[in-house]
Design a protein around this nucleic acid. Structure first.
Lengths: 154, 154
DNA sequence: TATTGTTATACTCTATAACTATA
DNA sequence: TATAGTTATAGAGTATAACAATA
């Protein structure tokens, strides 16, 4: 259990971290904004999936997910094939072109971070990754999506 | 110096941290969106300042800063008085109403974070704050703004 | 009737460029 | 001529609501 000033400080840090995200986003290819890059990365990491699953992983509304996916599908980076088991659903798969784009993105991200974080140790980056992962997890656990069995006191 | 996978992982984590920011932003009062709250917090923390200084602290363009400040000034939370020493400038000062709003925001942030991070130790939050601070600093150091003494090889 | 996904609309945040006033 | 700040415009990201097709 942390102190109140620590929480206020954390809120400040999170507010300010947007500058870092924007800086990193600026290295992306023109055709591939941050939202599109996130889609590609998640489909690569978790394998083929449906729209609803992707929306859950992105932690954004499915309507927004739909637009991002339309963007990457329009450029041939993702394949949307109908799910034979449920014709309402679509299965998302990374295409070879998608993998190429992802490799390009990874290279740009790595180059930028090497530049900015050249003086960070392996351990420090590892720690930050770990803490950010836990932070997300702590928020996910309390989301109204799924894993909320009951509690319907109207 | 970290490994490439760590950098890719960090890029992923930063991309995903937006969900946390949005979650935290949802607890803010209707009249005070995240951008406005950031303005108030920085003026409280650093004391009275000019627009250009605030823009630098926010790490956003002054045009955007101007809109955020207009928002908080319009609600009486910030006072914009002309700088007697330079009539082009305006000095920003927190008003009592601004302090009240800030107290309200701090309370909401703290309540939310207590809820989400109840199982985090004092040390863990401290570590995360520290690493996020360093991350920002590492990016700031490489920004084209100020602290770029020479290098004008046209 | 409920669920999957898409589209329309609106809001927040940001950047670029044009503009005003002052140095 | 250069700088401080404002405003107009455009683009990315997100949420809500209405809608289509299928379960």
């Amino acid at each position: 259990m942390a102190a109140q000033e620590q929480y206020e400080e954390l809120a400040q840090q999170l507010s300010a971290i947007g500058a870092v995200k924007r800086g990193l986003g600026r290295v992306l290819p023109q055709e591939c904004p941050a939202g599109a890059a996130a889609v590609l990365a998640l489909v690569e990491r978790h394998g083929e999936m449906r729209m609803s699953r992707l929306a859950e992983l992105l932690a954004i509304d499915m309507s927004v997910t739909s637009r991002h996916v339309a963007h990457v599908a329009g450029r041939g980076w993702i394949d949307r094939s109908p799910d034979p088991a449920d014709k309402r659903s679509r299965i998302l798969r990374l295409t070879p072109a998608g993998r190429d784009m992802l490799a390009e993105i990874a290279e740009r991200y790595t180059r930028a971070l090497t530049h900015y974080l050249g003086d960070w140790s392996d351990d420090e980056v590892e720690q930050l990754n770990s803490l950010l992962g836990r932070l997300r997890a702590s928020f996910d656990d309390c989301r109204p999506t799924a894993s909320t069995p009951a509690a319907d006191v109207t």
